[in-house]
């Protein structure tokens, strides 16, 4: 079984994206033997009011509940964020919180951000932090110039020790080493995907050595990226705990 921690639905304003509707992405994931996918709304990244995208997402996937696990995108610098987040969790039954400080122009260390992260932690909701959506080197001239700030992540980990974080779509092996050096991974509360980690040069093994197989999850960035590069890594990964990475870790994290 494979559970994908990082997929999207909605309209990306900078490039035509195939499989960006629930029906098409569901079928696409089926074809690639991905059984379940955490999904968030691309529209929530671009709407001023992220909640409109969260509600759209909930409506979009209502007939695909066996395929998608919705994550809420909340901007803690936008009015009403607390009410919106609670609504997403309690009414829309969303299972995770996804943050985009580099799109929504706030810092993870802002007072409201910390308050939102602590609220999610109290509600037993993990925080998904994608390092980027698309590779910054090919960015559209209106797209952001920034990726996830490691300094802010480092600082947030210091004050949110009990929060569960998922860091995806970045150089996970380097980020994990950076955080280990700063003694920020001692609670085993940070999970990493390997979407941008190569296996054939041993970087994926380095990541697993650093954080253990208990803290590595599968993420494809579909429909932005092909799923096959991640499947190739799984095919060549020779560890006995591979089921943890494919699905068990995220099942446990999300209480599935």
């Amino acid at each position: 079984m494979i559970i994908d921690v990082n997929t999207y639905l909605g309209h990306w304003p900078f490039r035509k994206i195939k499989y960006n509707q629930a029906q098409t992405l569901s079928k696409h994931l089926d074809n690639k033997q991905v059984d379940l996918a955490c999904v968030s709304s691309i529209n929530s990244i671009f709407y001023k009011d992220t909640q409109q995208g969260n509600i759209e997402l909930s409506e979009e996937i209502k007939d695909y509940k066996n395929k998608f696990i919705p994550f809420a995108i909340i901007n803690p610098s936008y009015a009403g964020w607390k009410k919106d987040f609670i609504y997403c969790i309690e009414e829309l039954k969303m299972k995770g919180l996804e943050l985009y400080p580099y799109y929504h122009d706030y810092k993870l260390t802002d007072e409201n951000s910390i308050e939102l992260i602590n609220l999610a932690t109290e509600m037993n909701i993990p925080i998904h932090l994608p390092c980027a959506v698309e590779n910054i080197r090919q960015k559209h001239w209106l797209d952001t110039n920034k990726n996830l700030s490691l300094e802010e992540l480092d600082q947030v980990l210091a004050v949110c020790e009990n929060t569960k974080f998922i860091v995806s779509n970045g150089s996970s092996h380097e980020i994990a080493e950076y955080l280990i050096e700063r003694k920020k991974l001692k609670n085993n509360n940070v999970y990493f995907d390997f979407a941008r980690v190569e296996i054939f040069n041993d970087d994926l093994y380095k990541l697993i050595d650093t954080v253990s197989a208990d803290n590595v999850v599968f993420g494809s960035v579909s429909p932005f990226q092909y799923i096959e590069p991640q499947l190739v890594k799984l095919q060549y990964l020779t560890i006995k705990d591979i089921d943890k990475i494919k699905s068990d870790n995220i099942k446990k994290l999300l209480n599935l």
Binding site: E198, I199, F200, N201, Y226, I227, E228, P229, Q230, V232
Partner: peptide, 14 residues
């Protein structure tokens, strides 16, 4: 160009 899994995966997935 050192990205084996990406390059192989692109070919498989295209």
């Amino acid at each position: 160009d050192m990205s084996f899994s990406s390059s192989i995966g692109k070919m498989l997935g295209a």
